[in-house]
Design a protein around this nucleic acid. Structure first.
Lengths: 339, 339
DNA sequence: TAAAAGTGTGTTATCGATAACTCAAAATTA
DNA sequence: TAATTTTGAGTTATCGATAACACACTTTTA
């Protein structure tokens, strides 16, 4: 690898002069500048970012930690983050926690040793608390995405889970459904809790009694087999509609229903949180509460970069993005029983 | 930030001794080791990877350069790459070229200055040649994914585009179609060329005449509006089936057909290359040539790590992964004209 | 014409870690 | 007991860049 010393020697100047040419700092005669530039090109010199970062205490690296890279919500978010990062001259160090605290912790350690300038952190859940605290202890700026963590005071970009859920359930109620199941994520994730709350509020608001036996607690990525829905369909009065708390659960639900020979929306209506990204457009079918995923990433990155480059002592900001109810063909008016 | 010097001072030893404790090298008495370890924990010491890399000339960073992070093929590939990287102790530096050579070049420059140990490179197309040459010039090991670049001798993991295309088209021909359109990517991308070749071979093999007016050349991400298909449907004898050269184009095609009021497969059959990832399972509809995306990433990463850690002079390897024809409900027997 | 200001460049120390070498004290051997 | 080996450290140089200071030589100013 060519270093600044190789350039210096060949150009007959000191290393410092080369450094000044590279960074356009200090005073350099036009003649020397040209000569150094020429040698740099001849030798295909590329500055060593490691050495530079070691001195400047700045890596221009930002870590993006998400929980599931195959979920279109997060990939779209990643696009937003990447675009904003690139615009500001940062590179993205990528990490995928798989909703797993241990893997997340591993990555946090990596992140700390890499000396990234900041972290865009989509936490696995409440237990991520310790991992975030670890970042705080080492004074690494971070912005929390999508899920709020109790006890952590930080910039955060959230979706309005409660309202989104309320809207979805209200839509079902308006269609005449009153046996609405909720297939939810784990309760140690704020979005799962809030979607549950929204679900309950909608019931309350429309004078519908709540039936806890209609609520299934899984994980956001844990729809393994269709046995998850068995209990629902063994109820005396099974659900006529299902609210899946995210897109991945919806996929599982739909598959499961198909295996049971149930038609959507003919036999049962289905709604879910989160849309399905660009490939979802192939068959826009599910009624969803769509979140502005790209903005999650973009805004989050902007906040983070402000933190990094600006005044770190600014008070924490909390941004809540609305979701949009998109009514498609997976929901329909509850038909009177044809007995 | 705590450094080994802080530890050394507090533990009453030299920095070198601390370094030895960290790396378990050299001879250290059990007593000193314990004392140093204790101080390290007290001060929450985390080694600075930058400084370490500067000395060792190794960053344990691998850059993953893909063309489209919102495409499920690439996200699944990324998962495979990430899993393999993590297993071997590497972190992923992420880059998204958007099928854009200029953006790709920008990232290559970043990559070079970051001194990554290697690059997993899914090139935008033939013009990526110069960017790859740049890596070669600086002796950065890399593995090329998905698209072969003429003139570049390197490890490469490919899908069998020709065979996959042949199978898809043969399937359509077997269903009685003989007016089969191809909506293809740009011809400076090897997969687009090969899928075109496969398309032609299938025609030849089954004694079907080729009609160039049935071939539309777009880009793999370039399905902007449905005017792209106008020409096809203004033909005297319009197609009864369409072969989209990747999943994103298929999305565009399907949307366009829907806008024209055409039923799939009732009015027209559609097939495409690449499947739709986990969320595609919500409504498995398109007949596809599915590629083992996860393996692309995993195998590619394994090859790369072998290159990095092993003998760099090993001859270039070329791995070709088969695709699987999955017949679903977007294709059906061509019905006789009901005039 | 001497002092002051400006210009262009070099020297040295530093960022945080490690490799290579050195060396005193303890343990072992002859 | 003297010579040798082993043990457990410390010192110095280095990775590649930059900050801070130094300094000779011009040019300007009084």
């Amino acid at each position: 690898m060519i270093t600044i010393y190789d350039i210096a020697e060949k150009a007959g100047v000191s290393a410092m002069t080369v450094s000044r040419v590279i960074n356009n700092t200090g005073r350099i005669s036009e003649e020397t500048r040209k000569r150094v530039r020429k040698v740099m090109e001849e030798l295909h010199y590329i500055p060593n970012a490691l050495a530079r970062s070691l001195v400047s205490q700045k890596t221009n690296l930002i870590s993006l930690l998400i929980t599931d890279i195959t979920n279109p919500f997060y990939t779209t978010l990643a696009r937003g983050a990447e675009d904003a990062a690139k615009k500001a001259g940062y590179r993205l160090l990528f990490a995928n926690s798989d909703e797993d605290y241990v893997k997340e912790k591993d990555y946090v350690d990596m992140i700390l040793s890499t000396r990234v300038d900041g972290v865009l952190f989509a936490p696995a859940g409440d237990h991520s608390h310790d991992n975030l605290l670890q970042l705080q202890k080492h004074q690494i700026p971070f912005v929390v995405l999508d899920r709020e963590i109790p006890g952590i005071d930080a910039d955060v970009v959230l979706g309005d889970s409660k309202e989104g859920a309320r809207n979805l359930v209200a839509h079902l109620i308006a269609l005449g459904h009153h046996r609405i199941a909720l297939v939810n994520g784990k309760q140690d994730v704020s979005t799962a809790r809030l979607r549950y709350t929204g679900y309950k509020e909608a019931h309350l608001l429309h004078g519908l009694a709540l039936d806890e036996s209609l609520v299934v607690h899984l994980g956001f990525r844990d729809f393994q087999d269709d046995s998850a829905l068995n209990e629902l369909f063994q109820l005396n009065e099974p659900p006529t509609a299902i609210f899946a708390a995210n897109n991945m659960l919806a996929v599982g639900v739909i598959q499961s229903l198909r295996q049971r020979g149930l038609q959507v929306p003919g036999d049962i209506s289905v709604v879910c949180f989160d849309d399905f990204g660009p490939t979802g457009a192939i068959n826009p079918f599910l009624t969803v509460a769509a979140q502005p995923a790209y903005q999650f990433g973009q805004l989050g990155m902007q906040l983070l970069i402000e933190r990094i480059e600006g005044d770190a002592s600014v008070e924490s900001r909390r941004i809540m993005l609305p979701s949009e109810l998109i009514i498609r063909s997976s929901t329909q008016q509850l038909l009177p029983l044809t007995t």
